[in-house]
Amino acid sequence: MITINNLHASIDGKEILSGLSLEVKPGEVHAIMGPNGAGKSTLASVLAGREEYQVTSGSVNFDGKDLLDMSTEDRAREGLFLAFQYPVEIPGVSNVNFLRTALNEIREYKGQKSISAKDFMAMVREKSSVVELDPKLASRSVNVGFSGGEKKRNEIFQMAMLEPKLAILDETDSGLDIDALRIVANGVNTLKSKENATIVITHYQRLLDYIVPDFVHVLYNGRIVKSGTKELALELEEKGYDWIKAEIDAQ
């Protein structure tokens, strides 16, 4: 699915990712954890193709293609989806119009016919129920006036609509109460299949009770410094990051 090899990236000349490697296979769920400022969101942004970041070396292979060579929109059309840590508001643009435009651009890229209004609305109804999103929100302006939880649920709703191969969820759990957390996790689990994969970026092990990862990685100083199974998350929860920091800094 995705193979990240020795990735270095910087912003304004400051290196944030320093030789990060990671491989995710279809059907897998990977969790990336790590202290604040470790570079988790940076990794998500670099993979999604945010222009402010410069990739200085390394490679990323996405389903047989050179990801770093593709434009931001083509990465999305190839099936890479980022659920934003801070979803953006677009006043005056309805959620449905936004999504229909996105969906049709993706379909056009794949040489498919654009979706009919009828099929689209049926899809909206079906997918909004997956994340228990009030259908009324679908016709409101993108994220405008949404509560924190609604914004996060809207991200998962969009993911459900666009059916990506690889979804990266950046702190989708932050700011969610326990019910919202369960709903979001439910959504993610429902959409999981043998063909797609998920990278869950999180601070807290709490989310991983609901979205059970196959692998857990610790990102620190711009690299993956430790990998394990879901037990690693529990260990981090218990002991914090200091022991890992100490281990790395000692080397």
């Binding site: 434009s71 931001t72 929109e73 999305a76 005056g92 643009v93 936004f98 993706i106 666009l162």
Partner: peptide, 22 residues
Amino acid sequence: QIFYCLQRGISEEKAISLIVNG
């Protein structure tokens, strides 16, 4: 806003058009 649109597969042109029309 533009990055958000691009990340959903929308071209820059169309992103600007969406945002401005909004």
